[in-house]
């Protein structure tokens, strides 16, 4: 079996965590991967500088879906600052696989979306 498609990645892509809309979100953002047509949108609720809830929706390959699922799980409860400091390698660690440059774009779409989402002006409730 393809090492990229380990059970855990397949599980997250088939049953993505934090998938859907978040009604009381105070941040919303979207990003696209133009080379493959993948797109993601995220809703984030921040309170006191912490990510208290997060949801994503999108269309894409198993890697981009699984990466969004992993990433949203990992940042829930973290501070916005910590989330903004995440980098490429953090995503690769989350996914636990090596990716070719072409697939790296798929994996990093979730991080790009998250950063765009958090960059949106918002009313962080105190």
């Amino acid at each position: 079996m393809s090492s990229l498609y380990q059970a855990i990645i397949l599980d997250h892509s088939k049953h993505p965590r934090n998938c859907g809309e978040l009604e009381h979100a105070n941040h919303h953002g979207e990003a696209k991967n133009p080379t493959c047509g993948d797109s993601l949108s995220m809703d984030v609720l921040t309170e006191n500088g912490l990510i208290s809830d997060i949801r994503f929706q999108g269309q894409g390959c198993a890697i981009s879906q699984a990466s969004a699922s992993f990433l949203t799980e990992s940042v829930k409860g973290k501070s916005v600052e910590e989330a903004l400091a995440l980098e490429r390698d953090d995503i690769l660690v989350l996914l636990g696989v090596e990716l070719s440059p072409n697939r790296l774009k798929c994996a990093l779409l979730s991080l790009e979306t998250l950063k765009k989402t958090l960059a949106q002006d918002s009313t962080d409730t105190v």
């Binding site: 894409g60 198993a62 697939r103």
Partner: peptide
């Protein structure tokens, strides 16, 4: 099944196809 996943898995078996736009 997303075309990228098809192409990647086939690619790992040395079957070269294209996926995307």
């Amino acid at each position: 099944i997303h075309p990228h996943d098809i192409a990647q898995i086939l690619g790992d078996r040395d079957i070269c196809i294209r996926a995307g736009e």
